[in-house]
Computed example of a mutant assay.
Amino acid sequence: MARAARTVSVIPADPIYNLNEKAKEKKLRVAAYCRVSTELEEQQSSYQMQVEHYTREIQSNPKWKFAGIYADEGISGTNTKKRTDFNRMIEDCLAGKIDMVLTKSVSRFARNTVDCITYIRQL
């Protein structure tokens, strides 16, 4: 049985490599979403810790640009209508102002599974 001849394509290396191009790489615009559902004292400290943690984490990463903290305090995750910062964050993501969102848990987006999946797919 005769074998068919193989065709090999050679892709030459790009001889021009500019180190300055690497430095110009676009930084990711990173935001964080924080939410606590009640205004109890222990939830207050969790809320403040989330805000401080994500602010520090984003600002300390040289590959990231701080795009803000979006935070809703004392608001349930069962409905997104009253969560003004969450809605503003989604709008900013869809407008191309945010590349990545950090959050404590995906359940911060919504307690309703369908809503949560909808927002994740949008992003």
Results as ranks from 00 to 15, higher is better:
V106K: 05
Q48I: 05
W64D: 00
R56G: 03
L94H: 15
S76E: 07
N112I: 01
E39V: 07
N61H: 08
E91W: 08
Y33D: 01
T103H: 00
A5I: 12
V101I: 04
D72M: 09
M89L: 14
E21T: 06
S46I: 05
T118P: 02
Q48L: 10
G96D: 11
V101G: 00
N112E: 06
A23H: 05
F86V: 06
S107Y: 14
K63G: 08
Y54N: 00
R108S: 05
R108F: 01
I90L: 15
V114A: 15
L94W: 07
R29Y: 01
I58C: 00
C34V: 10
S107L: 08
L40K: 13
N61C: 05
V8C: 09
Y47G: 03
S76G: 13
K27E: 01
T7A: 07
A95W: 13
F86N: 12
E25N: 11
R35L: 03
Y119N: 01
I120W: 01
A5T: 12
N61G: 04
A110V: 07
A13Q: 15
I98D: 14
E21L: 05
D85T: 09
N61S: 08
E39F: 06
T113D: 01
M89Q: 07
D14K: 14
L28P: 04
S9P: 06
Y119A: 02
R88G: 09
Y17R: 15
F66I: 03
I75H: 14
